[in-house]
Amino acid sequence: MPVTVSAVVPVYNEEGAAVQVAREIATEFSKRFGSGFEILFIDDASTDDTHGRLVAAQADIPGLRVLRHQNNVGKSGAMRTGFFAARGDVVVTLDGDGQNPAADAARMVEILKGAPADVGMVAGQRRNRQDSASKKWASRWANGIRKAMLNDKADDTGCGLKALRRDVFLRLPYFDQMHRYLPSLVTREGFEILFEPVDDRLRTTGHSKYTNIGRLAVALSDLPGVMWLNRRLRQPGKVSESGH
């Protein structure tokens, strides 16, 4: 059965969660997509045994592929590697810490597959977030500023669950931390976005790779660049071909 759906999971030092995440994705996706899916874990130069445990699990997890970076490049770089390697025309991203339910990922894929061609992405928006009060505050502050400046209609760009058409993602300009601006970048290319409520689970292993100060610094430093990108785009409208 040809692969039509790819799950891309960037991981860095997630030896305690990665294999369980892969098993959950395989279980949920096999129910909905048969054997027409693949699971790509992008190990972003982990220093623990994340890579070894994933490789060992390939023997009994269908469709599991493990790609490893020589150098750590961050979440956006790992996502980019996954989209380039993906064979499905629809790609859904999940975080590797176990906080994103695979059932929500599969549901978002089905929504995108059934949506009109001008819908480029289905973005998850977390309900009942399992984070500290300070982390929630920093997220609301950064999301509020970004939403006001970019008018991207997204309340939660930090959610790791996003389903995109692969060809849409490959059109987007790449830069570090671009994953925080996917709604604006997808809209920039002329595509619509659907927002779906998703569940958020408590992290049980490892620790977050981000700090509140780090999130705010990125929000302030990258926002002017994304605004510049949006201003500099000129859309040609409908493209038609005549003759051969």
Score class of each variant (00 low, 15 high):
Ser6Pro: 10
Ser6Thr: 13
Tyr12Gln: 11
Tyr12Ala: 08
Gly16Thr: 08
Ala17Cys: 09
Ala17Glu: 08
Ala17Met: 08
Ala18Lys: 02
Gln20His: 13
Glu24Val: 03
Ala26Gln: 05
Thr27Glu: 15
Phe29Leu: 01
Gly34Ser: 14
Leu40Glu: 06
Ile42His: 05
Ala45Asn: 04
Thr50Phe: 07
Thr50Met: 13
Val55Asp: 13
Val55Gly: 04
Ala57Phe: 00
Ile61Ala: 09
Ile61Asp: 04
Pro62Trp: 06
Pro62Thr: 07
Pro62Leu: 10
Arg65Ser: 09
Arg65Glu: 12
Val66Lys: 01
Gln70Ser: 14
Asn71Leu: 12
Asn71His: 08
Asn72Glu: 10
Asn72Thr: 08
Val73Ser: 10
Arg80Ser: 12
Val91Ala: 04
Asp95Gly: 14
Gly96Ala: 09
Gly96His: 04
Asp97Phe: 12
Gly98Pro: 00
Gly98Glu: 12
Gln99His: 11
Pro101Tyr: 01
Ala103Ser: 12
Ala105Glu: 00
Val109Thr: 00
Val109Gln: 00
Ile111Ala: 00
Pro116Val: 10
Ala117Arg: 14
Gly120Cys: 02
Arg126Ser: 05
Arg126Gln: 03
Ser132Trp: 10
Lys136Ile: 15
Ser139Arg: 14
Asn143Met: 13
Asn143Trp: 07
Gly144Thr: 07
Gly144Cys: 07
Ile145Ala: 12
Met149Cys: 08
Lys153His: 15
Thr157Pro: 15
Gly158Lys: 12
Gly160Met: 09
Gly160Glu: 01
Leu161Val: 07
Lys162Gly: 03
Arg165His: 01
Phe169Asp: 07
Phe169Thr: 04
Phe169Ala: 07
Leu172Phe: 04
Phe175Glu: 02
Phe175His: 06
Met178Ala: 11
His179Pro: 03
Arg180Tyr: 15
Tyr181Cys: 06
Leu182Thr: 05
Ser184Ala: 15
Leu185His: 06
Val186Leu: 02
Thr187Ala: 14
Glu189Tyr: 01
Phe191Lys: 00
Glu192Arg: 15
Leu194Trp: 05
Leu194Phe: 07
Val198Ser: 00
Asp199Gly: 13
Asp199Ile: 00
Asp200Asn: 13
Leu202Met: 12
Thr204Pro: 05
Thr204Ala: 10
Thr205Pro: 03
Gly206Glu: 14
Tyr210Gly: 10
Ile213Leu: 14
Gly214Val: 13
Leu216Ala: 05
Leu220Met: 09
Leu220Val: 10
Asp222Gln: 12
Leu223Asp: 05
Val226Trp: 02
Trp228Val: 10
Ser240Met: 08
Glu241Met: 10
Gly243Ser: 09
His244Ser: 10
His244Pro: 12
